[in-house]
Amino acid sequence: MRFWRSCLDDLAGLLFPGVPSVAVESVVDQAALVRLECRSIVEEAACPGCGSVSGRVHAWCARTLADVAMGGRQVVLVLHVRRFVLW
């Protein structure tokens, strides 16, 4: 298991260079589709409106990105991100 975790960490570094707050959770190979499941690992974030920092998670949501086919196969990136709430 440690080997696969290392491979996914290396993949995260290749896909998101300079963005240490994203982890690749899985890569699913489905014939004509490659699906990458990623998640945000940031512990807190600043509010874009007021700038206050919060670490309290309000909800999780998924953002799906699809790009042109690579090697004749569709590539889909699903990024699970946290939505924080201010108190």
Rank of each mutant, 00 (worst) to 15 (best):
M1E: 12
R2D: 14
F3A: 14
R5E: 15
R5Q: 15
R5Y: 09
C7G: 07
C7M: 13
C7V: 14
D9Y: 03
D10T: 14
G13K: 11
G13V: 10
G13T: 10
F16Y: 10
P17K: 10
P17S: 10
G18M: 08
V19E: 15
P20M: 12
S21C: 07
V22H: 04
V22C: 06
V22P: 07
A23M: 08
A23W: 04
V24G: 03
V24I: 15
E25C: 09
D29Y: 09
D29R: 11
D29N: 10
A32F: 03
A32M: 08
E37G: 06
R39P: 04
S40H: 00
S40P: 02
I41E: 12
I41A: 05
I41G: 12
E44F: 12
A45H: 05
A45N: 09
A45D: 13
P48C: 10
G49N: 10
C50K: 07
S52F: 01
S52N: 10
S52W: 01
S54Y: 06
G55D: 13
G55H: 08
R56C: 03
V57H: 04
V57C: 03
V57D: 04
H58D: 14
W60P: 00
C61E: 14
A62V: 15
R63V: 12
R63L: 13
L65P: 00
A66R: 15
D67I: 02
M70K: 11
G71M: 08
G72F: 08
R73G: 02
V75G: 01
V75D: 01
V75R: 10
V76A: 07
V76M: 08
L77H: 01
V78E: 14
V78G: 01
V78W: 00
L79M: 08
H80D: 11
R83V: 15
F84S: 03
F84M: 13
V85M: 09
W87V: 09
